[in-house]
């Protein structure tokens, strides 16, 4: 059984079809890229998987669980985490708090225990703080634990966002344009980084990206979207040679 399976997922905004008939069979451990021009519906696919939007038609399953109709926090609890195109950290909270918040569903004490700081509160909080700081250390962010997230430099904010996503203990990670705003050198480092977290955290990854260098470098399989429709899929080298993809990216004249 595939880890994530999307079957003819279709989504409309009002009358506008943002994603049409999207299909995906994702095996455990794969690293798949979704590419396509601006406005092709790539981020919408992420929003449909994570429950930010409810698919108009179709079904998405994770390990056999239906995701369509679940709220985002329930989807996250099933082991799907994501980052955002334009970083969405909890800016006015500390780096540590950003990661602690992502532990929310793993903390097992009730509201009453939080009102009076009794029962499991102490042990659970100690555990969450320990895990969060350990995770930050893995990402070399522990030195900034008490700083506000908004005061981190841009590159570290991107890294923190990934650390925060991993704190939810996902088996599937969705990366939305992780290379945005990076120079070629940084992109090389990012590729190593993505390979590394994949190994280290035993992840399956879907990646949305514009940077061809990154996509061609690490993705094992690609899907190409244009105006919501899947226009091609296959190995990176096949995609590079596909005339429909060139057409979508470069305009018609180049092909004819």
């Amino acid at each position: 059984m595939p880890l994530l399976q999307a079957k003819s997922v279709t989504h409309y905004f009002g009358g506008l079809c943002a994603v049409s008939d999207f299909n995906l069979d994702l095996e455990k451990g794969e690293l798949v890229g979704i590419i396509g021009p601006n406005g092709a519906g790539k981020t919408t696919v992420f929003n449909l998987i994570t429950g930010v939007y409810k698919a108009t038609r179709g079904s998405i399953t994770m390990n056999g669980h239906e995701l369509v109709g679940l709220k985002p926090n329930q989807v996250t609890a099933l082991g799907i985490a994501r980052t955002f195109q334009n970083i969405r950290l909890f800016k006015d909270l500390s780096v540590l708090d950003n990661v602690r918040i992502a532990h929310y569903s793993q903390v097992g004490y009730t509201a009453w225990e939080s009102f009076f700081h009794i029962g499991r509160y102490r042990n659970e909080e100690a555990r969450v703080a320990q895990n969060s700081l350990d995770l930050l250390a893995v990402f070399k962010l522990d030195a900034y634990a008490d700083d506000l997230a908004k005061n981190l430099p841009y590159g570290l904010q991107r890294r923190l966002e990934i650390a925060r996503a991993l704190a939810t203990k996902p088996s599937l990670l969705l990366l939305d344009e992780p290379a945005a705003g990076m120079n070629p050198n940084e992109i090389m480092l990012l590729m190593d980084f993505i390979r590394w977290i994949r190994e280290e955290f035993d992840l399956t990854i879907i990646l949305i990206e514009h940077q061809m260098r990154l996509v061609m470098g690490i993705c094992e399989r690609l899907k190409v979207l244009d105006f919501g429709a899947t226009i091609a899929e296959g190995l990176p080298q096949e995609i590079q040679a596909n005339p429909r993809v060139l057409e979508a990216y470069l305009g018609e004249q180049e092909v004819t």
Binding site: T50, V52, K71, P72, N73, T76, A77, A81, R82, F84, R88, L89, F90, I101, A102, Y104, S105, Q106, R164, A165, A167, T168
Partner: peptide
Amino acid sequence: IASDLMSVN
């Protein structure tokens, strides 16, 4: 939205 996606109810 980010909060929801970080598993917060």
